[in-house]
């Protein structure tokens, strides 16, 4: 059970650091909001077109915000060589990954929830119906995204061009998660088709499980120099 304590301690540390610095919160909230406003403005006032674009808008905003969040979670580690120290504690290195994943996931989920009112306001999306299914989609989608983002952010943490390399490396891998998330959200929000959305959610769950096992298993090799 000590491992679980390590995971929660690392996640708590990351969230506490973010609450104090607010570096990622301000940047991602502003960025995500701007993305949704621009998208809604570009699509125009047609209600049907706006409703069609709502799921895509939500996940574009979340995806870009997720990259910023994951990159920043390692940036704070690099100051004063804190990450070096973290790696030298007598704890399993997988717990470091899981702790950072938990923090990134919670942050992205919270951001997704904050985006929902904007979706209603800007895109006229109807969320009251099947809200629980939509929340499940956000939970599974952000988990998949956070898995890949946390993993690749660790991989590029020590590189000089990490800001530009991170999205280039991770987006091809995370595409299945994003596609499944957009389709599941579309089925729920736009069509209210729960049966069809369940197929996408199962696919999303499958991706999450595969990525979870692989990323956790090979994280210790990734941070090895």
């Amino acid at each position: 059970m000590a491992e679980l304590t390590f995971v929660f301690t690392i996640a708590r540390k990351d969230l506490l650091q973010e609450i104090r610095s607010k570096a990622v919160t301000v940047a991602t909230l502003f960025f995500s909001g701007i993305v949704l406003v621009i998208l809604a403005f570009a699509i125009g006032p047609t209600p049907a077109a706006l409703a069609n674009a709502a799921p895509g808008g939500l996940w574009v905003a979340l995806a870009f915000a997720g990259v910023i969040s994951a990159a920043q979670s390692y940036q704070t580690e690099l100051e004063d060589s804190a990450f070096e120290q973290l790696l030298l504690y007598p704890i399993p290195r997988a717990t470091i990954f899981l702790g950072k994943l938990l923090a990134n996931w919670l942050f992205m989920t919270l951001l997704g929830l904050l985006m929902l009112p904007l979706m209603v306001l800007l895109f006229g999306a109807v969320l009251e119906q099947n809200l629980l299914w939509l929340l499940l989609t956000i939970l599974l989608g952000t988990l998949g995204f956070a898995l890949i983002a946390t993993f690749y952010a660790a991989l590029t943490a020590n590189l000089r061009a990490r800001e530009s390399l991170l999205p280039v490396l991770m987006f091809p891998v995370v595409v299945p998660v994003l596609l499944a998330s957009v389709r599941a959200t579309g089925e729920i929000v736009r069509l209210g088709n729960l049966v069809s959305s369940q197929d996408w959610l199962k696919l999303l769950l499958g991706f999450d499980l595969i990525y979870f096992v692989i990323c956790t298993a090979i994280f210790s090799y990734v941070v090895e120099e």
Binding site: K13, L16, Q17, R20, E79, D80, S81, A82, L88
Partner: peptide, 15 residues
């Protein structure tokens, strides 16, 4: 079995 002290202290500034 080891403890390591790096040049910069290895501490978190926001804690």
């Amino acid at each position: 079995r080891l403890a390591y002290l790096n040049v910069f202290g290895g501490v978190y500034g926001t804690l």
